[in-house]
Write a protein that binds this DNA or RNA. Structure first.
Length: 832
RNA sequence: GGGCGGGUGGCGGAACUGGUAUACGCGCAGGACUUAAAAUCCUGUGGCCGUAAGGUCAUGAGGGUUCAAUUCCCUCCCCGCCCACCA
């Protein structure tokens, strides 16, 4: 009797209740038991889960359940990344409070996750917007403040006009806000930063330890941190006491420098142009450029604008006086904010030089085009070549010269070798309400005063109206702002900015180790046992942001002596996107499939199975309704197989359901003593293949196909199938936990729940066959097949192969030049 | 512009270390059951030629190495993602 939607609903809710009642997935540290920490990137609680969540968490759940069956002590927690702007936007729209809205969403989300049957330890569930959680954000901030790692500075920052808040560099994507896509502008503001740059070397070097991360994520982080070796070269300004320091990675081209360019924001600019005829024009240019949005200014193939300052600089290597320009293509934030321009060997300089008719000089000869002149160049030559016009360095390959010239300049005092990083400090202040208050008090007499430990948490006031306008909402709460200085007891005011929400998610994996501990951020013993996270799963979009910040926090905690490991995530899996009709499923595109609808029609197990079967976890997944139907069919088939065999304890289907007319044949249990060797081989093969699919990179799609093969073999065998069915149910358990539990119960096994039954093991000997099929090729083409005993001798193989009629046709009368045997697989005969 | 992935039937995707390409599923076609349909079950299913046996061509295109190439090498085309005036 095929089960129905109602049957499946009954089965799923029955087992969900069972797991809840028995707290089946509660984890407790057990120092003598091997642990496994599986974690998915926790969700923002929007209230409804989407297919991306379902995919992410299903992958994690299968891994968690598999490891449980393998005997690991598994920690698999869940929580909510609950601070952030959507709650504020919703509050404005619905005239509610962000807290009320968020907690309502969390409750909904919680129910949806339960309906998927995920094996979470619900006792550790947490929300970052709980004061008992964000209290520790403040604690961390103060620890950083104490060590000078959290500091406030005025600078030009990224500002999203739509969100009305500042953004970190990592949050600016193509010059636009990562959340709302509004073009980001620059603003001069005093803001809080975390000194992540102090950890730049460790963050870079330790990427090597992350062998089990996708290499592209490591590469993306490497590029983001952006270490480059080069030389800072000092150019004296002619007729002045000033010196311009430029940074270059191309010391080999120093003899080709024909001008110097400063960023418009460079502090020296105003001093240099003062009193020159060019002063007015220069200042106007600076005004114009700095008002331009950063994204516009940085967009690639733009005309390079700039002006001459009227001053000259002296190239230390040849004492040439070269003009000093200001150009919009030079960025103040990188290097020294000044460059030496070598138009012949740098495309950007080349374009600028053409635009402004500046001189050029070739210093690296193109081996493919040795006679070329400056006039004939159409673009910069940026490849390897031999140095010319470079004094005593002439005729050296430029790669070699790079090092030699750098050392020589350093010896001569012309410059010093240095390293520059692309990574900037992390701007964490946000002018928003729904986040962790930054625990700082401003006192006229004492300055920035940290909130004393025992006063934590600094709680978010509830009486703030959220309007979405007019700066930090907290500034409008007098009760919040007005306070007394902890040092001198005089009236003072609180910081009204809140922390970026990425702060919250940078350490939640540690909190999960002791989620209910209110005396400490986490228990050192618990963290030592559970950490690091063995398997982390989430989207590639966090390749830089969240993963880099989490690594930074982990290193900081290690320096505090709280933990001993220096990397938080041993193994990372970045799951692919869910597409529909070739496009990413998203609300804005309106092409989403609601997991709830699928759930109410097919149940969680079918959804889980389909999602895992349709594509390897890292690849994109194309949604397909008939594929879903196929998964339903497969589960149904297996269920009937078990039901037929073990009858009685079946969920009673509603009477309205028309039952199949075929009578169920009840066979007495325990009658089998000699399993069919073919089926036994298939059974062992399935265990081996499914286990391998897990161990070799979580190829769930092939794992499922192997289970299907076993199901097909059971169907074919008809009798003596008990052992094979049992194996199939066990293999299915991590994937489709509810149906597996139900089938397990029908089979009346001793373990009450299959979730903690042992993962099956295979017998290598059972995989052997008495007869194997070998393909026979003649001149590279398969012409026949022969059945032989394993490891048959060559002579025998030769005889048998040539006796095959198909082979004989091509090889019989010909002279055999070669006879190649791939043991137990293939024979290749080469004839003249 | 730079970097990293990819390109296999009508579709999602398999293929160990170079060893019988297309596992498994979807879809499709035919059949069984049914008054009929749904569901279920059985059979077939890369293209071309052939009644068949069989032959032949196929893993983005072209070349190479090899007894043997989806896999290794060279040239090129296309798609996706990330970074991008970083000196």
């Amino acid at each position: 009797m095929p089960y129905t939607t109602n049957d499946i609903k009954a089965i799923e809710s029955k087992w969900q209740k069972y797991w809840e009642k028995h707290r089946s997935f509660r984890a407790a540290a057990a120092p003598n038991k091997p642990k496994y920490y599986v974690l998915e990137m926790f969700p923002y609680p929007s209230g409804k889960i989407h297919m991306g969540h379902v995919r992410n968490y299903t992958i994690a759940d299968v891994i968690a359940r598999y490891k449980m069956m393998q005997g690991f002590n598994v920690l698999h927690p869940i929580g909510y990344d609950a601070f952030g702007q959507p709650a504020e936007n919703a509050a404005i729209k619905n005239k509610t409070n962000p807290a009320d809205w968020t907690y309502k969403c969390i409750a909904q989300m919680h129910d949806e996750l339960k309906k998927m049957g995920f094996s979470y330890d619900w006792d550790r569930e947490l929300s970052t917007c709980d004061a008992e959680y964000y209290k520790w954000n403040q604690w961390i901030f103060l620890k950083m403040f104490e060590r000078g790692l959290a500091y406030k500075k005025a600078s030009s920052v990224n500002w999203c006009p739509d969100c009305e808040t500042t953004l970190a560099n990592e949050e600016v994507i193509n010059g636009a806000c990562w959340r709302c896509k509004t073009v980001v502008v620059q603003k001069d503001l005093e803001q809080w930063y975390l000194k992540i740059t102090q950890y730049a070397p460790a963050l870079l070097d330790d990427l090597q330890k992350l062998e089990q991360w996708p290499s592209r994520v490591r590469l993306m982080q490497e590029n983001w941190i952006g270490k480059s070796y080069g030389v800072e070269i000092y150019f004296k300004v002619k007729d002045s006491k000033e010196t311009i320091s430029v940074f270059t990675t191309r010391a080999d081209t120093i003899f080709g420098a024909t001008y110097v360019v400063l960023a418009p924001e460079h502090p020296l600019v105003k001093k240099l142009v003062a009193g020159t005829p060019q002063a007015k024009e220069t200042l106007a240019f600076i005004e114009k450029t700095t008002n331009k949005s950063k994204s516009l200014r940085m967009s690639g193939d733009q005309r390079k604008e700039g002006v001459f300052t009227g001053r000259h600089a002296v190239n230390p290597v040849n004492n040439e006086a070269i003009p000093i320009y200001i150009g919009d293509y030079v960025l103040m934030e990188y290097g020294t904010g000044a460059i030496m321009a070598v138009p012949t060997h740098d495309q950007r300089d080349f374009e600028f030089a053409k635009e402004h008719k500046l001189p050029m000089r070739i210093v690296i000869q193109d081996p493919k085009n040795p006679g070329i002149t400056v006039e004939k160049m159409t673009k910069a030559f940026e490849e390897e070549g031999i140095l010319v016009n470079s004094g005593s360095f002439d005729q050296t390959p430029n790669v070699e010269a790079k090092k030699n010239i750098a050392e020589w300049m350093q010896d001569q005092g012309f410059g010093k070798m240095s390293v520059h990083w692309r990574l900037r400090d992390w701007l964490i202040s946000r002018q928003r309400y729904w986040g962790t208050p930054i625990p700082i008090i401003y006192c006229e007499a004492c300055g920035q005063v940290p909130v004393p430990w025992r006063q934590l948490p600094v709680e978010l006031p509830k009486d703030v109206e959220i309007t979405g306008e007019g700066g930090s909402p907290l500034a409008r709460s007098r009760g919040f702002v007005e306070c007394t200085c902890p040092k001198c007891n005089k009236p003072a005011r609180r910081e009204t900015d809140t922390m970026a929400t990425f702060f919250d998610s940078s350490w939640y994996f540690l909190r999960f180790c002791s989620a209910r501990n209110n005396d400490e951020i986490f228990d050192a013993k618990d963290a030592a046992y559970w950490m690091p996270v063995d398997q982390y799963i989430g989207g590639i979009e966090h390749a830089i942001l969240h993963l880099l910040y989490s690594r930074f926090f982990t290193k900081f905690f290690k320096d505090l002596g709280l933990i001993t490991m220096d990397e938080p995530f041993v193994r990372l899996l970045t799951q692919g996107m869910v597409l529909k009709e070739g496009e990413v499923m998203s609300k804005s595109r309106g092409n989403t499939v609601d997991p709830d609808e699928v759930l109410s029609r097919y149940g969680a197990d079918t959804l889980r199975l389909f999602i895992l079967f349709a594509a390897p976890p890292e690849d994109q997944l194309e949604w397909n309704d008939s594929g879903l139907e196929g998964s339903w069919r497969f589960l149904n088939r297996v269920y009937q197989m078990v039901e037929k065999r073990y009858s009685s304890t079946v969920i009673q289907a509603p009477s309205s359901v028309i039952r199949s007319s075929t009578p169920v044949i009840l066979s007495p249990k325990g009658e089998e003593s000699h399993p069919d060797p073919t089926l036994e081989r298939e059974r062992n093969k399935a265990i081996k293949s499914v286990t391998q699919s897990f161990e070799e990179g979580y190829k769930f799609n092939t794992a499922i196909s192997h289970m299907m093969v076993l199901a097909n073999a059971i169907d074919k065998a008809k009798t003596n199938v008990d052992a094979a069915i049992e194996t199939l149910v066990l293999l299915l358990a991590p994937f489709v936990p509810h149906v597996a539990e139900e089938m397990w119960q029908m089979m009346e096994k001793t373990e009450a729940s299959i979730a903690h039954a042992a993962w099956p093991v295979f017998d290598e000997a059972a995989l052997k066959t008495a007869v194997i099929t070998m393909a026979v090729q003649v001149n590279g083409k398969v012409r026949g097949q022969i059945q032989v005993a394993p490891d048959t001798a060559q002579d025998e193989l030769r005889k048998l192969a040539l006796a095959d009629p198909g082979v004989a046709k091509y090889a019989q009368d010909a002279a055999i030049k070669k006879f190649i045997v791939v043991p137990n697989k293939l024979i290749s005969i080469v004839v003249a």
